[in-house]
């Protein structure tokens, strides 16, 4: 029979979970409910006049074809950002796992970009790719590609994806490396003795054992791409040219904090919240099944 440890009184367990509950209430539930309430209001910037307009803000959003377009863009952006940063990080981690000499220095260098603020990262990439003065734009021109993210939406999208995933590579790298180092050597060696080549070993042994880490990172990266990237977009393209890099979270930011349209911005953040909750539930429900813990 299963042995259960039970608290004899109610006081202690409540005390123990209280800090977590308070933090969740104050930093998540309260602001989220505020956003929900705000999304039903039409208010001027100064908050002098406020009307309850039911779902008008949402109706306006969904009848705007540009808003619907930005859903598709957000999917492309998030998938590419998460895919690129996970892929590169996994590759680097797999390489770093085999490095013997100078491993610490190598690791430190890869982790560095994580300390860079998103807006700064954006400006950095912005300068490197600036069509008039950027080093990389110059290089591309020399290779025969006329880079111009001011006019070409695809170029602009690539620029924000690069800038957004570059930062995230460091974070993913750390987790992948830790995950790799937790895999027992004996398993890999046994496979090697059985004649499995490095790629085969990676694909059939290492990767499945790494799947809990990979799954966790997938969730974190998707959330990052959806929520945390407005600074990068703001610093590089401001959503342009012609909306080609206006992803959902950037529109929330620019309508709310530049346009001062609080109701419309709150409605968008509610939609965004719903999207991310759905995505996360979906990930846990379907993808997690394939994860071997």
């Amino acid at each position: 029979m299963e042995k259960r440890v039970v608290f004899s009184k109610l006081g202690l367990p409540i005390l123990l979970v209280a800090p977590q509950i308070v933090i969740t209430l104050v930093f998540f539930i309260w602001p989220a409910s505020q956003a929900l309430y705000q999304s039903l209001l039409l208010e001027d910037a100064f908050g002098l006049r406020s009307q309850f307009v039911w779902l008008d803000n949402f109706i306006a959003l969904f009848s705007d074809p540009h808003y619907l377009d930005s859903f598709a863009r957000t999917v492309v952006f998030s998938a590419a950002t998460a895919g690129l940063s996970l892929g590169v990080a996994l590759f680097l981690a797999a390489m770093a796992d085999r490095v013997l000499k100078g491993a610490t220095a190598y690791r430190t260098l890869i982790v560095w970009p994580y300390a860079v603020a998103p807006a700064v990262a954006g400006v950095l990439w912005f300068f490197m790719f600036n069509p008039s003065i950027g080093v990389l734009a110059y290089l591309l021109k020399w290779l025969g590609y006329d880079w111009n993210h001011y006019l070409d939406g695809t170029d602009a999208m690539m620029l924000v994806i690069l800038a957004a995933s570059w930062k995230q590579v460091s974070y993913n790298f750390l987790f992948f490396l830790a995950g790799l180092q937790a895999i027992p050597r004996s398993l890999v060696e046994a496979a090697a003795i059985d004649g499995a080549r490095p790629f085969k070993r990676f694909w059939t042994i290492i990767f499945p054992l790494l799947s809990p880490t990979a799954f966790f990172l997938l969730v974190v990266n998707i959330v990052y791409a959806f929520f945390d990237t407005f600074g990068i977009v703001h610093a590089t393209t401001s959503g342009g040219p012609a909306q080609s890099t206006t992803i959902l979270v950037y529109k929330v930011f620019s309508d709310g904090f530049i346009g001062l349209d609080l109701g419309g911005s709150a409605a968008q953040s509610v939609v965004l919240m719903a999207v991310v909750i759905t995505l996360t539930v979906f990930q846990f429900r379907y993808i997690e099944r394939k994860v071997a813990y």
């Binding site: 939406g153 959503g239 342009g240 040219p241 012609a242 620019s254 349209d261």
Partner: peptide, 21 residues
């Protein structure tokens, strides 16, 4: 009113015109 946002709309549409779309 809302001219900050409207300027961005004008920017977006002008960019689409310059790009020829």
């Amino acid at each position: 009113g809302n001219f900050v946002q409207i300027r961005d709309i004008i920017n977006e549409e002008l960019e689409a015109i310059w790009a020829g779309t």
